[in-house]
Design a binder for these strands. Sequence first.
RNA 1: GCCCCUGUAGUGAAACGGAUAUCACGACAGGCUUCGAACCUGUUAUUGGGGGUUCAAAUCCCUCCGGGGGCACCA
Length: 527
Amino acid sequence: MRETALRALKAVIPEAVPIEVTVPDNDTHGHYSTNVAFRLAKMRGAAPIAIAETIKHALLAEGNFSRVEVAGNGFINMWLAHSSLEKEIADIIKKKKAYGKRRAPRAERQKIQIEYISANPTGPLTLANGRGGFLGDALANILEAAGHDVEREYYVNDTGNQVRTLGNSLLAAQGLIPDEEKFYKGEYVKEWAAKNASLVKRFTKKPEVLGAKAAAYFLASIKKVVEKGAGIHFDRYTSEARHIHSKKFTDKVMALFKKKGLTYESEGAQWLKTTEFGDDKDRVLITKEGAPTYFLADAGHYLETEKRGFDTKLIILGPDHYGYVSRIQAAATIVGIEHSHVLITQAVRLIQGGEEVKMSKRKGTFVTFEELIDEVPKDAARFFFQMISPDTHMDFDLDLAKERSLKNPVFYAQYAYVRARGIITKAKIRMGRPDLSLLDTEEDVRLMRKLAEFPDVLRDAAESFAVHHVTRYVLELSKLFHNFYEKERVDGVEESLGRARLALVTASSIVLKNALGILGVSTPEKM
RNA sequence: GCCCCUGUAGUGAAACGGAUAUCACGACAGGCUUCGAACCUGUUAUUGGGGGUUCAAAUCCCUCCGGGGGCACCA
C-alpha cells in the first residue's frame, strides 16, 4: 500500500532525491508521512514548508488521497482515500494465502542460500542454536514471500577433528583411554557410550570411525528435534565429508586462492591474505602438519555454494563465531559470491536459581533446545524468540520460560484468529458482494489500514532481515482486531453493513494466518 | 590492549535520523443479557552521565561509567 504513496510522490517530484515514506504511530499524522520536503529544502534553496505546500497541492490533484496536510516544520501527511482501502481489502479476500507474497521482478530476484544452526553433530543443540534456527527459518519464509528463490541449508561438519574428539570422548567415558581436557564431558556422552558399550570397545583404535557413527546418531536426533519438535525446516543437509571433501572443493578453492596469488607459505603453513579484504590478520589454510583447517573447508563450502548458482549467501552464527566474520567474508568475496551477509545472534545466558550458569557444550552444562521444546509449546517458544531482535542479549530461565509461556502474547494473536473464525463460521448472513464503503467507523478504518500494511511489513523485513518486525506487526494487528471485536458487530446490525464487516473479518483472518504462518506459528480454530 | 553487541517504565522488550518514544507482564481502578472475558477501557518514562553534528538524536560522532561476547596452525 505504501507503494501508492511512493509512486504518487515520485510523480510530483522531479529531483532524484531519496523518498522515504513512513507509517506514523499516530493517526493525527496521517496514514503515510514523508520528510521529503526537508531533503529538498537544501536542493531547492527554499523553506521546507513552502516546498511541502507545493507537493501537497500536486498530491491532492492526483486523486489517491482524500486528505493531505503539511505539519510541523514541513512533514507531508497523507490520508488514503477510503476507496483505496476498500480495494485492498477486496484484494486480500481474493488472494487469500497468496496475499503478502509476491514474485520479485527479475532484476531484483536473488537466488539465496540461507544457512542456519549448522551445529556440529557432537551432541544436542543448545538454546543459542535454537535461537538461530527460529530466526533462519522465519527469515527464509520472509525472503521467499519477498519473491526470492531460497534454499535452507544446514551445514554438517561430519568429519575432521571434532568428530575424532567425539570418538575419543566416548572412549574416555568408558575408561578405555585416559580423559583429556578437550574432550566432551556432557551426560549425553556418557549415556551414549554406555548404551553402545560394545561398539565403543570395538573401535578403541579407531576414534574417528566411532566418532562418525556417534555423529550420525546425533545428527538424526538433531533433525528430529528441529524438524518435528520446533518446526524448523531445511532443504539441504550439506555434508562436509560428502559434498565438500569428496567433491574436492577444498582442493578447488585452494587452487583458486593460489591462482589469484593470495596465498603464501610461512613457518611451514599455508596462509591466505585475508587482510587484503579487511581482516585483522591473515589466516592459515593448511597447517604445518599438512592438515586443512576448518576455514579452508568452509571456503570450499562457499565455493560449492557459488558453483551451485547462488548469488546471495546468508549465514546465521552465534556470538562465539564473531571472530570468524571477516575471514568468511573475505572467502565469499574471493570465490565470487555477490552478496554475502553474516548475521550474528547475541548470547543466550542460562539462569538457574537466580544465578548465571556458564553454558558449555564441552563441559555439558547447558539447557538443550530439546528440553525447551519439551517444556514450552512450540508456538510460544517461536513467538517469544522471534519477538526480539537478534542483537538482544537474553537471559534464559527454563522455569520462568514455562511460567511465561502461559502469558505469552502468542495466545493473544491466536485468540484474535479464533475470534475471527468464530464470527465467520457462525455468521447468519453471507458475505456476497459487500459494499465496503460502509466500513466507516474508527475501528473499521484502523483495522483496514493495518491489514493493508502487511505486504510493506514483509518487504521491509526482507530487506533488513528483521523477523521481529513481522512478530510485532502480528501483535498490532491482533490488538486492532480485538478492539474492533469489542466495539463493532457483524451479527445484529443492518445486513449490508454486516456483510461488509464480515468481509473485513474474513480479510483479518487471512492476514493473521499468513503472518503467523511466516513466523511458523500455528493458527488453531479453537483454543 | 583491540573488535562486536548492549544500557529505554517495577520487569522483559520495540522504535527506517523525524513529530506526543511503543508493546507485553506485574500493580491499581473499572467493564460480560448480545459473534468465546485467553478480551476490552483507564492510571505509571524528560531513553546510563557529559559533550558534539543536524531544521530534527534513543538512534550518528567523541568521551566517561556499567553489562555480555570475541580476539588459535580448535571447531
